[in-house]
Design a protein around this nucleic acid. Sequence first.
DNA 1: CATGAATGAGCATTCATTCAT
DNA 2: TATGAATGAATGCTCATTCAT
Lengths: 209, 209, 209, 209
Amino acid sequence: MARRVDPQRHEARRLQIILAGLTVLAERGYEGATTAAICREAGIGSGTFFHYFATKTELVLAILELGTAETVEKAAALEGRTDPLAVLLELVGSWADDAADPRIPGFVRAVAGVMHLPAVADALAADDRAQRDLLLPWVERGQKSGEVRTDLLPARIASWLALLSGGFLERVATDPDFTVDGERELLLATARDFLVGPETQDGTVRASG
Amino acid sequence: MARRVDPQRHEARRLQIILAGLTVLAERGYEGATTAAICREAGIGSGTFFHYFATKTELVLAILELGTAETVEKAAALEGRTDPLAVLLELVGSWADDAADPRIPGFVRAVAGVMHLPAVADALAADDRAQRDLLLPWVERGQKSGEVRTDLLPARIASWLALLSGGFLERVATDPDFTVDGERELLLATARDFLVGPETQDGTVRASG
Amino acid sequence: MARRVDPQRHEARRLQIILAGLTVLAERGYEGATTAAICREAGIGSGTFFHYFATKTELVLAILELGTAETVEKAAALEGRTDPLAVLLELVGSWADDAADPRIPGFVRAVAGVMHLPAVADALAADDRAQRDLLLPWVERGQKSGEVRTDLLPARIASWLALLSGGFLERVATDPDFTVDGERELLLATARDFLVGPETQDGTVRASG
Amino acid sequence: MARRVDPQRHEARRLQIILAGLTVLAERGYEGATTAAICREAGIGSGTFFHYFATKTELVLAILELGTAETVEKAAALEGRTDPLAVLLELVGSWADDAADPRIPGFVRAVAGVMHLPAVADALAADDRAQRDLLLPWVERGQKSGEVRTDLLPARIASWLALLSGGFLERVATDPDFTVDGERELLLATARDFLVGPETQDGTVRASG
DNA sequence: CATGAATGAGCATTCATTCAT
DNA sequence: TATGAATGAATGCTCATTCAT
């Protein structure tokens, strides 16, 4: 008779813990983020935490999966676009903007510190794959349309865009003089240069792999 | 009664522990790298460890300082060179080669995970500073000689070279398809493109900050 | 508003939980028998459990009391019998048969493990007393009729019958080669020998206490 | 160079913890015997406990193994004896005496409560086997010499002696009126009766299995 | 009554660090 | 100096129990 399990309530609570975890992990790293601290931040009892996540690691995985899901959503939102180069630069730009939220680079560092846990490595690989799957079709279309260099395989170009975004994120996290606002434009310019490739007026390619 | 400390013996022992720490930290991350595991790897007793490092964190700092010292040495070895662009690309190349040692990216990740410890953050900042100090004079000379773009301040160019190296390191650590051997050349080409800057035949600058 | 409690429904539910508890306690011992596991076995929610039993311990007590009640019922069923020795052996036999239900020895072991709880010790003592009260009149009648040895006080004889039954139960629980079917007959023979006592053709008693 | 690991000191400490564990387990059962309580009783820090036993369960196993070892020693001490029936009764008597140490029945109960743990069940089975191995040769010799009944297989007789000892132990633990001193003699008489078997002047056997 | 989400006290266990030898 | 036994604070996690719905 009794109606229970309001799934909406459950999901809201879960998200609340995820956000608290994101905050605390970013601030204190994996080992510094004690479950007690996360519970305090989330305003819940310690037992409640384990109703939603069986282990502390599982919370980390949930946060990563949330990120992966956002990447997938991003892909869906781009359906119908016909300007591949612009799309790619928008994606790079949106990752740069992520770096402006101080929780993101902090969390990325925290996760890097526990990447030796197989489950985390797997989730990270899945995230990377989602990112690549998001980029790949636009790189291919760009190559077809002639906007993107063709001397490199699409997957490799996607990896290098991830390299630029990852390096950017790390730099923002490390160097107080390196800010998103100040460097965003240069990131896009550098990414564009990379995507366009070496000027090949003379028909030769400077870098081949 | 007089306990003589053979300073050479002491230094050798210290280095032995540092290398063991580097290995174990890279494999298991900071929290997974228990002092017991490090001692086992180093072949010493747990008490001995604390004769050389007062805390586990201090070992991490010592490893970081070793890296910083190597950067300084690198700077000294470049004295007298007169080809700034080549020097800069050699430095980027040498960092790429570091990534080939699996302990380096692993250790970098482990350290990222405890960057919230002020002492670690400081050591990392010092490392970053050493790297910048290494790059800076060569960027400036390159700008003077006309080999390096002049639309960006030298410090900013140095930061971006660090961005490329850091992103490269991370990518090697994350993506099994992304290897040092396979991508080194493209890294150098991209770095050269960045250093040279946008073609300014027409006198305009594409990106300015 | 008036909440009527169907007492029959209530009792049925209670028994359902008791049986689930018996099963789970037998399988996993007291600490392994979490209330969650018992609720799952009983097919009820965790809250419901505490409508019927205020604490987990109280469930154990209820199970014990059920056993005690059965002993009392057994006593009532024997009213009118006139063959004390046969009655005593039937009782021993019925306890042996209990051991064939794997839940009984398992539960007995589980309860033994928490006998340090005063409430459990009390309930166990009450159970023992009920058993003794069941045996005692038949021992006395047997002594009067000459079928049962008279060199031992009735209470002592009752204790020893309990000893044989308890030892039998434990053995069945411990030793896979020791089965109720295989050993029942020998138990009865041994109990009879004990009840009859040492052959006193010569008028002396071998054991006196 | 440094000489460490005084194995004698280690063994002494280990035994100290075992005895503390025996005491606390007997008093409070398995779940009541927190490692903290055991450490307090042993006068050690909590960390020290885990230098000697990896888990709480392992301490229980160690105690059981100690008992098994004592049984084996007992066997050795009987070498050379030529009076099987007396030996068997001495063994039964020594088990009865064990029951006088209040820690023994308490510990036996505590262990019964966690018998669902496979490791504990195995250790208990090993203990049972040791007991059987101790009894078996003397039962066989007794049968050969005619002192012990031959209508039952030796293993079965051994089981029944264990049944009597186990039931005795349980009774002492349960019933305050049932004392070792008061009942020891009757135990031996009952065991002798069982060993001798039904009087077979007439050549018939009363109980067969 | 029935439910299960929420709670937090309590526990086993880990691990950096100390110190007597 | 080298050792490893000893320490105990700190942590992740469990589970009996409560209570709003």
